[in-house]
Nucleic acid binder design. Structure first.
Lengths: 325, 325
DNA sequence: ATTGAAATTGGTAGCGCTGCCAAAAAATCT
DNA sequence: AGATTTTTTGGCAGCGCTACCAATTTCAAT
């Protein structure tokens, strides 16, 4: 293995000189620089950041602990974050919790062993243990895609409760009164649960009952959305609008309607959440709320890179009036 | 910061003893173990793997350099790999190349600075520089989702050429003769290009011409599939089947047909590639080829963890006869 | 030339851990 | 009890790098 010492020897200079040249830090003459670079090139030297990190301070490693990779939401966040991190010479490391808080704790602990600059997590709901080790670690913490709760350090996203309320408000103003809900496991996806809470609350405040609810125990998926709506309608056929826990579910509902010739929105209105691209190119664009997923990742990374003071950043959301309402 | 030395002092034992207990390696009495664990607990000690890695040999870090996170294919691979890696106390680190070989080279170089156990890449097409530093690094290399080429070390996936050929063969046997293609940038997504090559070759061998082709310069997406099919049909309305570069594109094509009342498959057949879940719950299930994406990630990780000898693993693919052909 | 300041350079002590070795303690056998 | 084996333990030298400091060289100013 080629080490810095060998490069130094090959170039006929001291180790610290090589280190300075390579990091472009401190002073050195043009001549030495060329000599060092030539040796680096010739030997094919790749600096060892493990050693570098140990010797200096920061690891320039950012840990992303996300609930799922199947859900495109988190892939988007990852994408936003990794772009910015890369531009700033940081490295993204990730783990998937499967929406399990205990697993999150274990993964956070494992991540902290790498002494990351920051840990990014989804939402505010963590085990006590997670909070404790995170606090003790002294590294920056960013909680993503949720604002309804108290932040540990940094938080970036939008209010799910507000998004749910806005969805309800929209359906009410459009005149829908027999409204149902098709969702997925609220215990695991607490952000979906918050949206639902905001939604129900707004309906309640308007004196409109939530007629029926169909909740699938597993994760959200197009398939579960389709079967969920099917079951809901079998039980309560006279609904005039259905709110879904997210666009995947809503898309499934939409497919159910297409397959069974249910006219949309004449006979039934559908409303999703997230504003996925695919929802814009279905025969009828999906009515939904567009969430700032990539921006959340991007902003979170920017805050971490800039070592910004603790703060909460509300990126908001945008209601998209498609053709399904 | 709590270090191993402090734990040792607190527990009244030597450093190496703490190290042994924590790694459950070597021998120690039950009594010391309890004493050490108590101190670890009390001080909230989290081992520093940066230091551990430097002192020992392997980093237990696996670098995944993938073209895109938007494409669910790679999210699936990541998922498969990260599950296995986690079970074996390895850490996944990733970077996104945006299908750019130069960027891939830069990212691989950056990754190697972390002295990973293995580097996983998509496909066989890399710059000379990438190959050179990979070779020089001495770490394991896994090339994913492609078998049509020469492997550097390990390769896991399926033959895209064969998949394209199988697709063509299927359409031919179903009696389609006026076949078109809607695809995305073949220079960047070389695996899609290989499928297309296999497809064309098989048509050619059967003496059936590929009637028309519409290639979008950008990445694949539902939207580009939809607009692509629209342009293709505007130019060549009398096609009886269209092969798409992947399911995202095919789904877009399907939506175009739904929106414009084009009967499927009576008037036009659609065939995709990947076998995404969503394609199974559309009103008419999509005819496609299911690829072993999660399995590819899983197997790749298993090989790396087991430090298996160089080999090529063909996971095959499965043709799914949906209702669009 | 002589001096002082500035630029450049090398030596070396860690960073926190693991691996090795030898010492000490405990267990087993004559 | 003494001898021998086995288990348990601590000390310490690195891993490859960076940070700091002191030494050296260069340069401009007197």
């Amino acid at each position: 293995m080629v080490t810095l010492a060998k490069v130094a020897e090959a170039a006929g200079v001291g180790e610290s000189t090589v280190s300075r040249v390579l990091r472009n830090h401190g002073s050195f003459s043009r001549k030495t620089r060329d000599r060092v670079m030539e040796a680096v090139e010739r030997l094919g030297y790749v600096p060892n950041r493990i050693a570098g990190t140990l010797a200096s301070a920061g690891s320039r490693l950012v840990a992303l602990v996300i609930p799922s990779l199947t859900n495109i939401v988190f892939a988007d966040v990852l994408r936003g974050a990794s772009g910015v991190l890369e531009e700033n010479q940081h490295q993204a490391v990730f783990s998937v919790t499967d929406y399990d808080p205990e697993k999150e704790e274990a993964l956070v602990a494992a991540m902290l062993a790498w002494r990351p600059t920051a840990v990014m997590l989804a939402g505010f709901e963590h085990t006590e243990g997670t909070v404790k080790i995170l606090r003790a670690s002294g590294c920056r913490v960013v909680e993503l895609l949720d604002l309804d709760g108290r932040a540990l350090d940094l938080a970036v996203g939008f209010s799910n409760r507000a998004a749910g309320a806005a969805s309800a408000d929209f359906l009410l103003r459009r005149g829908y009164r027999r409204i149902g809900y098709v969702g997925h496991d609220p215990d695991r996806d607490t952000r979906a649960a918050k949206r639902f809470a905001g939604f129900r609350e707004t309906l309640g405040a308007a004196g409109v009952p939530l007629v029926d609810t169909e909740i699938h125990a597993g994760a959200s998926s197009v398939e579960n959305g389709r079967s969920g709506l099917e079951r809901l309608l079998a039980r309560t056929p006279d609904l005039d609008a259905v709110y879904f826990s997210n666009d995947d579910m809503a898309l499934g509902g939409y497919f159910h309607c297409l397959a069974h010739g249910i006219p949309i929105p004449a006979r039934l209105a559908l409303f999703g959440h997230n504003g996925l691209d695919i929802g814009r190119v279905t025969p009828q664009p999906l009515s939904t709320i567009r969430t700032p997923r990539v921006a959340t990742g991007r902003v979170a990374a920017e805050l971490v890179v800039a070592d910004a003071p603790s703060q909460v950043v509300d990126l908001g959301f945008e209601l998209i009036e498609g053709a399904t309402t």
